[in-house]
Design a protein around this nucleic acid. Structure first.
Length: 269
DNA sequence: ACTATGTCCTGCGAGC
DNA sequence: TGCTCGCAGGACATAG
């Protein structure tokens, strides 16, 4: 479900709501499938820890922990996959289907991880490395380096988290539309000048989306249960057959690396 | 080393 | 109404 802007929105909301709170106890669903680290390791790292900060790295949510004011070695890492949600609620709130983890907080509230499709992952790490570079912090030289000699379609390269972290299917399509590059264009065939413009539009799209609280397609909501509004700004994503907002040509949908890809055949070369 | 493809899951809407 | 099909904000493992 969530890409960089959605994860950023969620992490900010969580930071506001649970920073400073202490994790009294942890319940993890019996099936350890959504866990990347052993359940016991996760529980041991979380229980009796104070949540110092909550922040985003790529599409990951990082909880920095501390014990008695001393920063802990371990960090709690949450990846929401396609359908993962973190909800802060009162203990009496109905436990939703597909709830896989419940953290009881000293404030009396609970932090719950809900994920119907189970693509999300919970883990603990030390000095977590999300791989790739942060698009919003990328400078031109490092951005150009990512694509040098790559024959893969530019869309695939943008989605590769080992190169660039945080861009997903929606924002890749939207960024490419804004610079007029077709998603199937081989990365190595794009000029420096065009890649420079691509970096500008990636940043632009991500910043605008964050400002609107992300894109809510079917069920995405932030930590407060609020939907985002960037879906209203989508120019190609999800608009197959509808007229291009610039030239009226019907938007095309093709499949690249198993992912739906939307573009305007006239505006994008 | 890089690239393309299949797989993991559940739920929903479209079409019959 | 009820079924089947295709599709979904992601990331791996595997094969070539």
């Amino acid at each position: 479900m969530p890409e960089l802007p959605e994860v950023e929105t969620i992490a900010r909301g969580l930071a506001q709501r649970v920073s400073g709170d202490v994790i009294d106890s942890v319940w993890l669903g019996r099936k350890p499938e959504p866990l990347k680290s052993p359940a016991l390791e996760i529980a041991a790292a979380l229980e009796h820890s104070r949540i110092a900060t909550v922040r985003r790295m790529g599409k990951h949510i990082v909880f920095d922990l501390e014990h008695n004011g001393v920063p802990a070695q371990a960090q709690w890492i949450v990846h929401l996959g396609m359908t993962g949600r973190l909800q802060v609620c009162e203990p009496q709130a109905e436990i939703l289907k597909h709830t896989h983890a419940i953290l009881k907080l000293a404030s009396g509230r609970e932090l719950r991880f809900v994920d119907p499709r189970r693509f999300g992952r919970l883990s603990v790490a030390r000095g977590f490395d999300a791989g790739g570079i942060e698009p919003l912090e990328a400078d031109l030289d490092r951005f150009l380096d990512l694509f040098r000699g790559r024959k893969t379609p530019i869309k695939s390269a943008l989605l590769n988290q080992k190169l660039l972290r945080g861009v997903g299917n929606i924002y890749a399509d939207e960024s490419l539309f804004r610079v007029g590059i077709r998603p199937r264009r081989r990365a190595s065939t794009i000029t420096r000048d065009q890649l420079g413009k691509l970096l500008v539009s990636v940043k632009e799209v991500l910043r605008e989306a964050i400002a609107l609280g992300g894109s809510s397609i079917s069920d995405y909501v932030d930590a407060d249960g609020e939907a985002g509004f960037f879906q209203l700004q989508h120019r190609v994503y999800g608009r197959e057959g509808e007229p291009c907002l610039v030239c009226k040509t019907p938007i095309k949908r093709i499949v690249i690396a198993g992912r739906s890809s939307h573009y305007c055949p006239k505006c994008q070369k």
